[in-house]
């Protein structure tokens, strides 16, 4: 865990090590590390029973399931469609390609609250899209999935795109000349090359979706036990000045997302080991 001031043997004539090291550590500590450590400090001040009760409250448990579940589904949808869009943008020429390519970044650029109210209005029962469905979309978990899919799309497209771009054409040709059909080539040769990028894209989209607040609060409807996401529970507790409760839920959420990200990293590490040894 220690960041040591000792540099490795290889010295360089480039100046500024102490200055940049000092500044980086100071700024990082002030803006990120010290504030984040408050979560741990505050949790430690809680009694175990108090902590346990807060985090296992049925409303909280329902929110974990909802948050993790919807983020997971949205991530999967994004992996599928994101990869398809990346493929279409890289491999095909068609009118409007450049515009679509640019629009993929919209969720990065558009404030989440703006996306939230726009999607809610569109998918509301009387909205442009919602009116065509017999069932409710806005104010249900389905609506949450739509909002999370919206914000996660660019993560997958932008990680898969460069890999697809750099894929060697020769490998596909080798597969074809060995007698494979185009479908076989895609499944056995191209997809395995894309898996690492798809997993990275998924984990980025997933972790963003898990913590997402702005675009979801509007479309979720926020019904306790049904459409209340974990960040909203934290928010509600804060509004009631229940800082301790908010912190307890926050630590569950942080731990959950770290465990999942570690797991994804582990899978990826194993895949990379195979490729590059």
């Amino acid at each position: 865990m220690e960041l040591s001031l000792k540099r490795r043997k290889k010295t360089t004539i480039i100046p500024g090590f102490s200055l940049t090291f000092g500044y980086t550590m100071l700024y990082l500590s002030m803006i990120v590390l010290l504030p984040l450590s408050m979560i741990i400090v505050n949790t430690l001040s809680m009694s175990w029973s108090e902590f346990y009760e807060t985090i296992t409250h049925p409303r909280a448990v329902a929110s974990y399931k909802l948050s993790f579940g919807t983020a997971f589904v949205a991530g999967l949808i994004n992996v599928f469609f994101g990869t398809m869009i990346a493929w279409v943008l890289i491999r095909y020429e068609f009118p409007g390609r450049k515009i679509i390519d640019g629009l993929v970044d919209l969720p990065f650029a558009l404030p989440t609250a703006v996306a939230g109210i726009a999607l809610t209005t569109l998918y509301a029962p009387n909205g442009w899209i919602g009116q065509f469905f017999d069932f409710k979309i806005s104010y249900t978990p389905l609506g949450i999935i739509i909002a999370l899919t919206f914000i996660g799309l660019p993560f997958v497209v932008r990680t898969v795109q460069p890999v697809l771009q750099n894929l060697s054409k020769e490998v596909e040709e080798a597969s074809a000349s060995l007698g494979a059909t185009r479908f076989q080539t895609f499944v056995k040769i191209i997809l395995p090359e894309l898996y690492p990028a798809m997993i990275t894209g998924f984990s980025l989209a997933f972790s963003r979706a898990l913590g997402e607040y702005g675009s979801v609060v509007f479309i979720a409807g926020n019904m306790p036990m049904k459409t209340e996401i974990t960040p909203l529970i934290i928010m509600t507790k804060l509004e009631q000045y229940d800082y301790v409760g908010a912190t307890a839920i926050a630590i569950v959420m942080l731990s959950g997302s770290f465990i999942i990200l570690l797991f994804i990293n582990f899978i990826q590490w194993r895949m990379n080991r195979k490729f590059y040894h």
Binding site: S4, R8, F17, L36, Y213, L238, L254
Partner: peptide, 27 residues
């Protein structure tokens, strides 16, 4: 420069991406 703990530092810099904005406010 090359120094010990560089990868850890990079991970720490990325940390805020993995934290929910609501938790960012909370801290």
């Amino acid at each position: 420069f090359s120094f010990k703990g560089k990868n850890l530092l990079i991970t720490l810099i990325d940390l805020p991406f993995a934290v929910s904005p609501v938790i960012a406010g909370l801290i």
